[in-house]
Amino acid sequence: MKSIPVSTTINGDPYEFLCAPDETLLDVLRNRLSLTGAKEGCGTGDCGACSVTLNGRLVCSCLVLGAEAQGAEISTIEGMADGDELHPLQRHFIDHAALQCGICTPGILVAAKSLLEKNPAPTDEEVRYWLAGNLCRCTGYDKIIAAVQAAAAEMRGA
């Protein structure tokens, strides 16, 4: 298999890499670019642990080929905090104990950020349906919903 050269933008920074034609964006992020914040829980789009945004859309990076990143804008968990200033969602997840083991947390944070950009004042039900593709086995989701709502309220200036 001949490798494909790809130029892309991740968290605002230019990146260039070579990848195999059948290599997923998740594998590229984790194995070639040392961006291991996106996790592989299933590799089939069923758990959401590998969530990133691709040209502003929330996607599972396990369901995107690395080659498709050509010319794209990608955001990952590593780009969520502004330097040492945590994003309100990140802060509220810590304050509300919205993580136990933390493996699903990067994906849920990326997904929640994408929700709040689209809908700054979601209902609990809207948060739950938006996050239905992000499995969490530890928390029962309760504190995740509470943390997203607390962050949303802060971001609205409420």
Partner: peptide, 20 residues
């Protein structure tokens, strides 16, 4: 209800899990 000490690592993607 204090903040957990591994919180920042786990919300920034920095925490090292088995496959990392």
């Amino acid at each position: 209800r204090v903040r957990r000490p591994d919180g920042v690592d786990k919300v920034t993607g920095r925490a090292m899990y088995g496959a990392d």
